[in-house]
Simulated assay, not measured.
Amino acid sequence: MKLYLTPGACSLSPHIALREAGLKFDFEQVDLATKLTKSGADYRKVNPKGAVPALQLDNGQILTEGPAVVQYIADQKPDSKLAPAAGSFDRYRLQEWLNYTASELHKRFGQLFNPAITEDQKKATIAGIGTELDYVNKSLGSKQYLLGDTFTVADGYLFVVLSWTKYFGIDLGRWSGLKAFSDRIAARPSVKAAMQAEGLS
């Protein structure tokens, strides 16, 4: 398998999942501005959407969209418990968290990365993120991870999105549960390895 990624972007989530699962893979960096891979190839021939991540399977198929990619990875190694069994209610809980992270948190942070955003828009967006983090912090409660005591791909995705708070002056310490959660994930060997490989640590 080959993962196309951009350092620190949402593609860090499947990168972590691949390492957690212990699967063999290669990766190639993508410049999202030029849509070129590090080797100089046109990334749009891999993913016409021009976004990361994209996972190229050994049979040549390309899978895109982070929540789909991480569930595929988890299902390749069921013993890793990166995702509950397909069809179980806990699997739908996992999808609930993946979808919330993607459609609410990730989408809002995406607005902040837009250089054309005005100061008023930025303030409103950060306020909205704060409300959503209030909800996630309360939902997490005393649990170690989103689904309980077991790390899943939903935790990896949330960790990546939370890591973007530092770029916009959002103090994660305001949510003690989320700060402890983020620190807990950051200490995992797979996360350290993925971040080091992407030049983030």
Rank of each mutant, 00 (worst) to 15 (best):
M1A: 06
K2I: 07
S13K: 06
P14C: 04
L18D: 02
L18H: 00
R19H: 06
R19Y: 06
E20R: 00
K24G: 09
F25D: 09
F27T: 06
E28W: 06
V30K: 00
T34W: 08
L36R: 09
K38R: 12
G40W: 09
D42V: 03
D42Q: 07
K45Q: 15
K45R: 15
N47E: 08
P48T: 06
P48F: 01
G50T: 05
V52M: 03
V52K: 01
P53D: 01
A54G: 03
L57S: 02
G60K: 12
L63V: 11
L63K: 11
L63M: 14
P67T: 03
Y72D: 02
I73D: 01
A74T: 08
Q76Y: 02
Q76R: 10
D79A: 14
S80A: 15
S80H: 08
A83D: 02
G87C: 09
L94H: 00
E96C: 00
E96V: 03
E96P: 01
L98Q: 01
L98M: 10
N99D: 14
N99R: 02
N99G: 10
Y100E: 07
T101Q: 05
T101C: 09
S103R: 03
L105R: 04
H106Q: 09
G110K: 03
Q111Y: 11
Q111G: 00
L112A: 05
L112W: 10
P115H: 13
Q121H: 11
K122S: 14
K123Q: 14
A124W: 04
T125S: 12
I126P: 01
I126H: 01
A127V: 09
A127E: 14
T131V: 15
Y135I: 08
V136H: 02
S139R: 11
L140A: 07
G141T: 13
Y145S: 04
Y145K: 01
L147H: 00
F151W: 10
V153T: 14
V161S: 00
S163H: 08
W164D: 11
T165Y: 10
G169P: 08
L172W: 09
L172N: 07
R174G: 05
W175T: 07
W175F: 15
K179W: 06
F181R: 00
D183F: 00
R184F: 00
A186I: 04
R188N: 11
R188M: 11
P189E: 13
P189G: 07
Q196G: 13
A197W: 03
A197T: 02
G199A: 06
L200A: 12
L200Q: 10
